[in-house]
Design a protein around this nucleic acid. Structure first.
Lengths: 238, 238
DNA sequence: ATATCGTATTTATCTGATAATATTGATGTT
DNA sequence: AACATCAATATTATCAGATAAATACGATAT
């Protein structure tokens, strides 16, 4: 089993190794998931631990288990990609610049709409949090704050200011994935400091109660991020 | 326990009642989730069943359970709304036209982008499936098919044709929720048959390889759906 | 060939016991 | 009085083993 014992209890460890193995494609038609009994033997854990791990993964759409039928991996279309664990396993298994592109396409759709809603809703408290994040980005230019964290905080605060539970929710997933994505795009573009200005334009439009403009400015930013990834894909970078 | 014995095994039943109870707000600060032992007693199930159900709900972000700490409901921000079960429990518990609005806002963001990507990707097989769904909608006008199912099939096929796993994935959630949402909007607008034409314009743009136009046409449709819900909210309809 | 039925395999469920863990209150120290 | 340390205790975690239920598969009969 993976030596990721950091605070994880046994069933979580089992779920982690199993989930990872499934997503890596280790199991399939020719090589089905072993039975509960065999699983216990292989991983040296009790049935409780194994079964509870299986239940976790079933809840995430990775597999089913039924009497006499055994444990079956579900088709990828059933996997819940909007689950932090599943997404992590996918990132860790597939190098998948591809996944990053698909994720960027989602952000292109979602973030402008979130910015628009934030401008419409005008929740002053949450808008001020966008402002704080923007300040952090400014500070980061002089090395007084972490640019990556500041950038992430900015995007999350916009999603939150949209006052839409689905968008806020996406924030949590975007959080973990941005840590990979932003690092990548910054690597490609050389961490231009100009970023701050483009972000400020989104913030200004939201403060000014201009939904359309906020959406448009957010679109520009997102399109750029996507374009960088697409360019890398065309070059055959992995 | 809920008498939803339809094919569900015991742990699934426990997870269902517990999940539903959590989302209904039955448990909170003043009224924490009972301990494993008490839970077993109340529901008249063994520890295995209870524990496995808890693991399921933990995987969906509804609760955590740790030794000596007991079972704790997580804040709503942790609940995975992009999970079919969680979403169903929310629909069943809260009347929540509010939730419908937030969901519509998500669709406004996602579907135009999906239509755009579908037009770009030009996967002929998947585009022909959009065509089939459109035909079904046409047939439905003469009562030869179910208009609701046809409508849903249309939107799902577009998401699928985007060849983006996140969008496809959203399809499964949209599926269940559309059955409520479309019914509602149709109820409000009197099931206008004109729907077919607006859908056809999206399809035509995709076939014609016109991404921008496809997105624009999809936007119009989505904005309408959202507007109906917003109007109802303003009138105080629940 | 098809339908029926029995058998065997696998998960489902129950029970009981021990271990690990973290809360809480007691105790002692500064 | 405030704070660190430690022991007691309640709760989940993990293990072990047994029985029940479900269903895939093959045998049998029509």
């Amino acid at each position: 089993m993976n030596p990721q014992n950091r605070g994880m209890n046994l069933t979580q460890q089992v779920a982690d190794t199993l989930g990872s193995a499934i997503i890596t494609g280790k199991y399939g038609e020719h090589n089905p998931v072993p039975s509960e009994a065999v699983l216990c033997e292989q991983l040296k854990v009790s049935r409780s631990a194994a079964r509870e791990a299986v239940k976790s993964l079933a809840a995430k759409g990775l597999l089913t288990s039924r009497a006499r039928q055994g444990i079956r991996v579900l088709p990828e279309s059933e996997w819940n990609l909007f689950d932090a664990d599943v997404l992590r396993w996918m990132r860790e298994s597939n190098p998948s610049l591809e996944l990053l592109r698909e994720f960027a396409e989602l952000r292109v759709a979602v973030e402008p709409q979130a910015a628009m809603l934030a401008a419409q809703r005008q929740n002053s408290e949450k808008i001020s949090q966008i402002g704080s994040a923007l300040n952090r980005m400014k500070q980061a230019e002089s090395g007084l704050d972490d640019p990556l964290e500041a950038d992430i905080a900015f995007h999350l605060s916009i999603l939150d200011a949209s006052e839409n539970r689905f968008f806020s929710q996406l924030g949590r997933i975007i959080d973990t994935t941005l840590r990979v994505s932003i690092r990548f795009t910054n690597m490609r573009t050389g961490v231009r400091a100009g970023n701050h200005h483009e972000h400020k334009q989104i913030y200004d439009a939201i403060v000014a109660n201009k939904p359309e403009e906020a959406a448009k400015n957010a679109s520009l930013l997102m399109d750029n991020a996507l374009a960088i990834i697409v360019a890398a894909l065309k070059e055959g970078v992995k």
